[in-house]
């Protein structure tokens, strides 16, 4: 899988009433292929902006992003997206949603149907191909979104709070699914999440970001994602090492939030 190279990104939004927001400042990092990077931080820290720049939906004010040798200038099927919700096509059934990417490239039914069945099996939805999207629960819909993303065989999967709208139990199951997909396919994943626990469990690399201007404040390389492939994720979360990092990040985010509130009052 191709490496991601983010080179000196700055993002400045002009506000309609004058003034500007420094959403991202001097973001620079390299991510080897096959890593699972989670982006964490208080709201306004620019984590979604960074994801959208990698996806090619936004162009940075300055700086460049490369996937492998190729400079990112817009969205492309080598970077698949999974959104929190509302990105599936309700007028298509599950199979047609999953095969959307191949069909846009002119794939024939005989070509994509076996692949759709394989993907349904991988995300645990065997036999659901003919169901309509609105007949599925939120968790099942996200499984379809993952399968649809994989159908294009992208180098990298970008996820914008993919589990944010799910209940706690479904969320845990989906976390395991994402980890196993990551391990089995070897694809790079960049995921934005609000949940510290989720970021630590899934990310074999975690960026904690800070706002005003948006920047990467802390970088962690963590073992929990690999361990969760074989061990019980619940036991990992209970572990002292996990709790220690979690507390560290939580208190760090708390400090940032307080700092922001204080600055607002002044």
């Amino acid at each position: 899988m191709k490496a991601l190279s983010v080179q000196n990104i700055d993002m400045v939004y002009d506000l309609p009433k004058g003034g500007s927001v420094h959403a991202l400042s001097n973001i620079e990092f390299d991510l080897e292929g096959g890593r699972l990077l989670t982006l964490l931080g208080p709201s306004g820290c620019g984590k979604t902006t960074l994801l959208n720049i990698i996806a090619g939906f936004l162009g940075p004010t300055s700086g460049e992003v490369y996937l492998g040798e190729e400079k990112i200038t817009g969205p492309s099927e080598d970077r698949g997206m999974v959104f929190q919700q509302g990105a599936l096509f309700e007028w298509l059934n599950v199979s047609k949603n999953i095969s959307f990417g191949p069909r846009m490239k002119g794939a024939r039914k005989s070509d994509y149907l076996p692949e759709v069945d394989r993907l349904l099996d991988i995300v645990g939805l065997s036999g659901f191909g003919d169901k309509q999207i609105y007949e599925l629960s939120g968790g099942m819909q996200q499984r379809v979104a993952l399968a649809r993303c994989l159908a294009n065989d992208p180098d990298m999967m970008l996820m914008d709070e993919p589990l944010g709208a799910l209940d706690a139990l479904t969320r845990e199951k989906m976390q395991s699914l994402i980890l196993h997909l990551w391990n089995d396919t070897g694809k790079s994943i960049v995921m934005v999440t609000h949940s510290v626990e989720e970021a630590l469990l899934l990310g074999d690399k975690v960026f904690v970001m800070a706002p005003r201007p948006g920047r990467i404040e802390k970088i962690y390389e963590l073992p929990f994602a690999h361990r969760a492939l074989t061990e019980d994720p619940r036991e990992i979360k209970k572990g002292a090492d996990f709790q220690e990092v979690k507390e560290e990040i939580l208190s760090f985010i708390w400090e940032m939030e307080e700092e922001i509130m204080g600055r607002d009052e002044a």
């Binding site: 996806a55 939906f57 817009g74 969205p75 492309s76 099927e77 970077r79 698949g80 997206m81 959104f83 929190q84 919700q85 509302g86 990105a87 599936l88 096509f89 959307f100 990417g101 846009m104 490239k105 649809r148 294009n152 970008l158």
Partner: peptide, 15 residues
């Protein structure tokens, strides 16, 4: 049309 739908379509390779 929700922005995620439009963006997802482009990411899936739609013209």
């Amino acid at each position: 049309a929700s922005l995620p739908k439009v963006r997802a379509s482009y990411s899936l390779g739609a013209s």
